[in-house]
């Protein structure tokens, strides 16, 4: 009884999560992806401790030094340590990427579940609106918003989140339509549950796994878009270090001092690669065709 009770105390959500993790367990690449990603997160958190220099401190004497024992990744045109700037830049990328993705996840899933559950004309209208949103390439959309509203962290997050809402709405809507026809949803209606309760308590946990897979893949996209916007000068204003901005700064002297761009580029590449490995692993775990029989 005690064991059964302990298992029993798992709630719906964590049950879904547990299912995901069990399938995830056997997937080596996703563990590597998760490992790399968590390492980057840890480095970003510990940046004040780990960074050998102040990322904003200019040092005219040590301008454009190549990688050395003193400056592992070299210095930039103002003599700032690139390693330190990378560590602090990771914070910017992660905060903007994660916040934007979370907002899109919550808003998008809510729209998708509502749209799929209500159905009919409401569904049609919402989904057509989503199609319009989706028809803008993420970068162009971000560009437009930041150009109009100005480049602040809030606006960047808003811009990136807005482009990601439509895909989340779509991914949440499809399983909702399938689930709402199941008998157990009909039983909920027969038992007099409110629509809000049915959506939040009975449908959401069943689409959670798909949403989380999408989340990990969109986190990569968000980080990439943030870097791209920074690269074309629409990111956070200097001197705040961001990976995209660092690539751009290095771009001006790339022929003679390639490391300025190479190290931030590699950082962007690494995190996107890690998140994609993680996302693919999660997707395989969620895909019922690949999952073992119940």
């Amino acid at each position: 009884m005690s064991r059964a009770a302990a298992i029993g105390r798992r709630r719906g959500f964590s049950h879904a999560l547990g299912e995901l993790l069990r399938a995830f367990n056997t997937n080596v690449t996703s563990w590597i992806g998760l490992g790399i990603f968590l390492t980057i997160v840890l480095l970003a958190i510990l940046a004040p401790v780990l960074a050998p220099y102040d990322p904003l401190e200019q040092n005219i004497v040590a301008r454009l030094k190549g990688p050395s024992e003193q400056f592992w990744f070299g210095t930039d045109v103002y003599g700032r340590d690139i390693l330190s700037r990378l560590l602090y830049g990771a914070r910017v990328s992660l905060i903007i990427g994660t916040t934007a993705t979370l907002i899109a996840m919550v808003v998008g899933s809510a729209i998708g579940i509502l749209s799929g559950y209500v159905g009919g004309r409401v569904d049609l209208a919402i989904m057509q609106l989503m199609d319009v949103l989706m028809s803008f390439p993420t970068l162009i959309m971000g560009l437009m918003i930041v150009a109009v509203l100005g480049a602040s962290m809030g606006n960047l997050i808003f811009a990136i989140a807005l482009t990601a809402i439509a895909p989340f709405a779509r991914i949440a809507r499809a399983p909702t339509i399938a689930i709402k026809q199941r008998d157990y949803i009909e039983a909920c209606r027969a038992l007099g549950y409110s629509d809000l309760r049915i959506m939040a308590v009975h449908i959401l946990p069943n689409v959670m796994a798909e949403i989380m897979v999408m989340g990990s893949l969109w986190l990569a996209t968000s980080i990439r878009v943030e870097a791209s916007l920074s690269f074309i000068g629409l990111g956070l204003k200097p001197p705040t270090p961001s990976w995209g901005g660092m690539v751009r700064e290095g771009f001006e002297v790339i022929l003679d001092n390639a490391w300025l761009s190479i190290f931030p580029s590699l950082a962007i590449l690494l995190i996107i690669f890690a998140l994609n490995m993680l996302g693919d692993g999660l997707r395989d775990a969620v895909d019922p065709k690949l999952r073992g029989g119940e």
Partner: peptide, 10 residues
Amino acid sequence: ASLNPRRMIG
């Protein structure tokens, strides 16, 4: 199909 697979019986 008539029971929510993620919901404990209790």
